[in-house]
């Protein structure tokens, strides 16, 4: 495909160019406030993530950026244009990969791409060429002539990603790009998205997979209850909101709580879960030695690096949101 052309185009505008700018952006549905005054800057060529539990306002934000949902308040500019006024012109330069695939299951993979290309006014011949290139890119060239219906979830997702690139977009919006995929399919999608990122395509994605965010995003915001609760590069967020390492201790007793008191002072923060105790520490091995020095004998000990998941759970809580 000619994403390489795109890389050139995006590099030409310096990477500090702001493509998406939101100030005090609000979305209300009746009495319910889905997005409660957020500020966001997405720069050309970066991969930007919206992280958060279900109902955090990620998808509402994505729909506003996708110009299919007018903001209730605040300001939003996309490539210097106003979504309220320039919807079609902005959408012409976006590639959208929605949360649930809306391909036509009766059409072939190729027809799905070519008919979609026509919505952008792309000539038929060019549409066919691009479809072939993009199917190569998502490794589905040999399925070009098959109907979409019998394809696996991972293949459909790759078709949707290919479709989102058919107009050579400046920004690609991906709403939970790997939700519901098996591990192999997820890794293939990540790998393709990483390739796009390398080629300089601006990616904006939502996810609640921490590993996805850590792998793909240069910068991200954590949303909760319609607000942004943290912002930065994955590594920066981990440093700021968690410790370098986490020690997971499992005690044989039924009540882990009994041991929490005996661990006081061993970590910057102690979290007691029903089945284990987490110690947030700078040096995991030192902390384990200290635990043993207090004559405590956990049934199992695990020292690991702090992850974005720790940040996420710390910021948005462990309560299940449905």
């Amino acid at each position: 495909m000619d994403v390489s052309d795109q890389a050139v185009r995006v590099d030409a505008v310096a990477s500090d160019t702001v493509l998406i700018q939101a100030r005090g952006l609000v979305k209300r549905f009746g009495d319910f406030t889905a997005v409660d005054g957020i500020d966001v800057d997405v720069r050309a060529g970066e991969a930007f993530g919206f992280l958060g539990p279900n109902g955090a306002g990620k998808s509402s934000t994505m729909r506003m950026i996708g110009c299919v949902s007018p903001p209730t308040g605040g300001e939003l500019q996309i490539m210097g244009m106003d979504p309220r006024r320039d919807g079609p012109a902005i959408r012409a330069r976006l590639g959208v990969c929605p949360q649930s695939d809306n391909l036509d299951p009766e059409l072939t993979v190729q027809e799905n791409l070519t008919t979609y290309a026509r919505y952008f006014g792309i000539p038929r011949r060019v549409a066919r060429e691009r479809a072939a290139e993009l199917l190569n890119f998502v490794q589905l060239a040999e399925r070009a002539g098959s109907r979409v219906e019998p394809l696996s979830g991972g293949m459909k997702r790759r078709v949707t990603i290919a479709r989102a690139l058919v107009n050579e977009p400046d920004i690609v919006l991906l709403d939970e790009p790997t939700t519901g995929l098996d591990p192999q399919a997820r890794h293939l999608v990540w790998e393709r998205l990483f390739r796009l990122k390398q080629q300089g395509v601006t990616l904006v994605l939502t996810t609640h997979y921490m590993d996805e965010a850590e792998q793909l995003c240069d910068r991200l915001v954590v949303m909760d209850g319609g607000r942004i609760v943290a912002e930065g590069a994955p590594r920066t967020l981990i440093e700021r909101y968690s410790t370098r390492e986490v020690v997971e201790l499992r005690f044989a007793a039924d009540n882990q709580e009994d041991f929490a008191g005996k661990l006081v002072g061993l970590g910057e923060r102690i979290e007691v879960l029903p089945d284990r105790v987490l110690l947030y520490v700078g040096d995991g091995d030192a902390a384990v030695s200290a635990v043993h020095a207090r004559a405590l004998t956990p049934a199992s000990v695990l020292v690991r690096r702090s992850s974005l998941e720790d940040v996420f759970l710390h910021l948005t809580g462990r309560t299940l949101v449905d």
């Binding site: 505008v13 310096a14 500090d16 702001v18 490539m79 210097g80 012409a92 006014g121 400046d170």
Partner: peptide, 24 residues
Amino acid sequence: MSLADAVAPPRPKTGLVGRFPVLA
């Protein structure tokens, strides 16, 4: 750099379908 610098010229609308998207 300001937002305006990011604005590429609008893509030319070519062909019948470009002018009348309803046909697409």
